[in-house]
């Protein structure tokens, strides 16, 4: 069996006396679609922040593509192929929709060496990415002119523009209607079919079940389940964590 793309090994994180992550292990294989669920405060976002470098894990290691990335900054991890979207969309408000996409192309894709994108190539890549999320007609708009679902799509498109090996989508569907949720799930599956490994953090179970090939459950900073979605949601410990003992 080949080495996993992401290997989270005994990762721990505390905030004062509060244990946010307690020796969490997680392996994600290349091309996989993994759902990460857990009640509020279970440590999902903290785990994402530790994987992406926004927070530094106090114990354990984060191994990505065979290399320990514990000491790397967030932008260095993005350069290595680890991208994320945020729970609350964080577009660059003073830049147009197309310019938001241009930033990772300039700073990540062009920073990797190899072929540098210039002029019309950059524009074409922006249009291609915006078409992927159906925002091409709003390329010149500012983010403040977008709807909530469009903002979510922009967030995902910006992460995808960095040409990641692994994309972590942190609650990309929060606050969206049923049809909008289906829209985003379909988009994430399309991205996965393009070769991007995806970890999706979500509370909307219908979306999680449609999307995930594997389901991981965190409760109180500990991983309590990891397996096929159908089996995991029947796990007594998981049911207890969600519905109460």
């Amino acid at each position: 069996m080949s080495a996993p793309l992401l290997h989270v090994d005994q990762v721990g994180k505390r905030f004062g006396g509060f244990v946010a992550l307690d020796s969490v292990n997680l392996d994600v294989a290349e091309g996989e679609r993994v759902g990460l669920i857990g009640p509020n405060g279970s440590g999902k976002s903290t785990l994402v922040n530790c994987i992406c470098g926004t927070l530094r894990n106090e114990t354990g290691d984060v191994i990505f593509a065979g290399q320990n990335i514990n000491t790397l900054n967030t932008h260095e991890r993005t350069h290595r192929g680890l991208a994320r979207s945020f729970q609350l969309p964080r577009p660059f408000m003073s830049l147009s929709v197309a310019e938001n996409i241009r930033v990772p192309l300039l700073y990540t894709v062009n920073a990797r060496g190899g072929h540098h994108l210039h002029g019309s190539e950059l524009d074409d890549r922006c249009v291609e990415l915006l078409k992927l999320v159906a925002l091409d007609k709003k390329a010149n708009k500012l983010p403040r002119d977008l709807t909530q679902v469009e903002m979510r799509k922009l967030e995902l498109a910006r992460a995808v523009a960095a040409e990641p090996k692994l994309l972590i989508a942190d609650e990309s569907m929060a606050g969206l209607s049923h049809s909008e949720v289906e829209d985003i799930v379909a988009l994430l599956i399309r991205l996965n079919q393009r070769g991007i490994t995806i970890i999706m953090i979500e509370h909307i179970m219908s979306a999680v079940m449609t999307f995930s090939q594997r389901l991981v459950v965190l409760v109180s900073g500990k991983k309590i389940a990891d397996g096929k979605p159908d089996e995991v949601i029947k796990d007594q410990e998981v049911v207890g964590a969600y519905l109460g003992q």
């Binding site: 660059f92 830049l95 241009r102 700073y107």
Partner: peptide, 25 residues
């Protein structure tokens, strides 16, 4: 320039800038 885009992302959202690969420091 590329530098100008980078500066604008720092002004707008430093965390998102880092996540987009911008070496903010």
């Amino acid at each position: 320039s590329r530098l100008g885009y980078g500066f604008a992302t720092i002004r707008d959202d430093e965390l998102a800038a880092e996540a987009s690969g911008v070496p903010t420091l």
